[in-house]
Amino acid sequence: MDVFLQQVINGLSLGGIYALIALGYTMVYGIIELINFAHGDVYTLGTFFSLAVLTLLGVSGEVHGPALIGIVVLTIAVAMLLCGLTGVIIERLAYRRLRNAPRLAPLITAIGMSFILENIMQYWRGPSPIGFPQVVPNPTFHLGPVEIGAKQLLVIVLAVVMMIVLQLFIFNTKLGKAMRATAQDRDAAQLMGININTTIALTFLIGSALAGAAGFVSGVYYGSTWFFNGFAAGLKAFTAAVLGGIGNLAGAMLGGFLIGLIESLTTQFISDQWSNVVVFSVLVLVLIFRPSGLLGESLPNKV
């Protein structure tokens, strides 16, 4: 039982990272029905930006006390801002002109953007794995029989907080309303005086900023990164978005946590090499019985 609970914690923290990335996939799909393949690479870019900020600040080891909070907040903020801007630029360069083109065209440019970002990162920091400074101390807290590390807690809390903030933003602000309207019917929204371009750019800004936050967290959590990191993580996160119901925020979150849990529990009770098989089998089963994903039917909430 102890090991089971421990694996649940492992799964939730792994799933937290997937969930943060999946939110970006699902937002973009919700609003323009595009699978933004470059999103996984924006996530890696987030780790790279965080690393650059930490290098600028001269941080190379653990930081304690109030300085820790300052550094974490500053690094996340800068990474989110820069990733958000990258997302906006990608949308402007590669997707906007293709908005009314056949579906396949923006999908291909998305893959192209993904390769471009990967190669930029490879040029920037070289093709080898890069160590990420252990900024956050990792004391373990004992909750009854299970242990939870501070870094795991950070991942889970950040993912949940981000989703709640996002949910509040979309359902309680005017901009959020504009996003929902655009998602529902772009032409009608435009007739109502909503600036479509700004709204879509805003979606990319927020989605990519979340990937930036995930990038920082993954750097802290794994202590290492490399330019190709976003490929595997992006694929899993995209799967999470589909599993939860693409276009649905809570679904992306649920999908992310579910995939993390399935992976860690499969590792515990079956074998590590079967984890991907089980994840994708569950995906297939869910899609057979619920083609729009677990929470994918509530269309009015789609963003």
Binding site: L14, S264, N276
Partner: peptide, 20 residues
Amino acid sequence: HEHITANQQDFKALLTKIKS
């Protein structure tokens, strides 16, 4: 004896199992 998969980055679940 366990086999890991290509591009795997998270080994915490496997290591937790091994620890027990």
